[in-house]
Design a protein around this nucleic acid. Structure first.
Lengths: 226, 226
DNA sequence: AAATCTCCGATTGTCGACAATCGGAGAGAA
DNA sequence: TTCTCTCCGATTGTCGACAATCGGAGATTT
């Protein structure tokens, strides 16, 4: 896992990363109460750093804190995810438009290479469908970085990215969308290479809308199963 | 000030609000080092809650923390503000489109009334130009709330809102943009009333672009004066 | 039996002190 | 003089203990 590295820095940062990982992977269930003393002992640290970590995660919207009542893991209900995808559509669409103007040819080629490796992974298929999901996020993040907008990188990279990963973990079972998604990614890269920002934005927005439709359906099934 | 009320809740929350206020109003200069012990004493609390507050403000991008080197007030340079306004354009444009579909007639009428009170304030002119700025933000936030998108409200309300206010405080001296801005606001409300989301989005994007142009010019003057 | 009140355990919020780390002043050598 | 190295003060990072607050179990009343 690439996020295990930041074992440097303050204990609070370490705790934040470990907690985020536990939440994203579902090791900590949605809505679960987070006991400070228990977590502090599990991580081998005092409650001080852990509280700072919880504050950080609260800012990322991974946990919800209620004064004098502790923190709980956020629950990704339909409304939350719907709102998230709507924001993503606007933000990543914008990122594409900017990226078409600012990315270097080398960076775009690198993006294309990333898709090649994804295609390879899909052909091997077998297990590890989620790794494609992680790769998919890599693709999106690469474009966001290409936009050159720091605020955008922070919003989509550090913050919402975690919520996205959390969502993916829940819905990674259905892999039937990986191939059309890859095609859409290719089209987006093509648009970027042609420096057609308008088209790139349009394609990205459709791509995200498609992803939302897929996830929305899945939520429906889950709900009627319950 | 409407943000003085949350003197309830944990000390960390109180500290976060007071710090945010001090930063936004410029009482704490940009780039200034924030000494934990000093601030803790000034606020009459221990360093624990204050550290949590700093973490919170870090998430809001009001302060920048460097491990083992403390926290400093963020500096709003040209690039940061440019990125901020670009994101605002995308997000508030989207908010307008959603608001046109979801706001009730009563809410839109209330928005219109808000503009009337702004016009009144402008006629009185005299001092307190910044109060119009605060009012302007009220207008924008009202629309964001009208969008019904929780994520959007969080991003534009709790987070970037503070950065915006900080920017306004620096640039509130030029009031010559208040009247055209008010007209643009009126047009936006008209579009909302006609349930024309496309137009409302377009107008809001132009409005924000105009605001950025104005601020950008001001930064130019400041820079060549220095 | 249902509702309410009281008290207690558990958990969060807060503080003060100690340890670790960094930046800078000042001495010494080239 | 200037560069570097060392040491020291200041500041941050961390911990353990204490106080405040909340939720719930159990007793009491109607």
């Amino acid at each position: 896992m690439q996020l295990m590295v930041p074992e440097q820095g303050t204990l609070a940062d370490v705790a934040a990363h470990r907690l985020a990982h536990s939440i994203v992977t579902g090791e900590l269930a949605q809505g679960q109460k987070l006991n400070e003393a228990e977590l502090a002992e599990r991580f081998g640290m005092g409650r001080g750093p852990l509280r700072e970590a919880l504050r950080h995660l609260e800012g990322m919207r991974l946990v919800k804190r209620i004064p004098n009542a502790g923190a709980r893991v956020v629950v990704l209900d339909r409304k939350t995810l719907s709102d998230l995808y709507a924001v993503r559509e606007a933000l990543e669409g914008m990122a594409c438009r900017l990226a078409a103007a600012r990315m270097t040819d080398a960076e775009i080629a690198q993006l294309s290479a990333l898709l090649d490796s994804h295609e390879e992974q899909i052909k091997e298929q077998g297990g590890k469908v989620y790794s494609q999901s992680e790769g998919d996020l890599d693709f999106h993040l690469q474009i966001v970085r290409g936009s050159g907008n720091e605020m955008l990188m922070h919003l989509l990279g550090s913050e919402q990215y975690q919520l996205l990963r959390m969502c993916r973990y829940r819905t990674s079972r259905n892999a039937q969308r990986t191939k059309p998604a890859l095609n859409q990614h290719r089209q987006i890269v093509d648009a970027l290479a042609r420096r057609d920002g308008e088209l790139a934005e349009l394609l990205m927005r459709r791509h995200i809308q498609g992803a939302w439709s897929s996830i929305s359906e899945m939520i429906d099934k889950e709900e009627e199963a319950a």
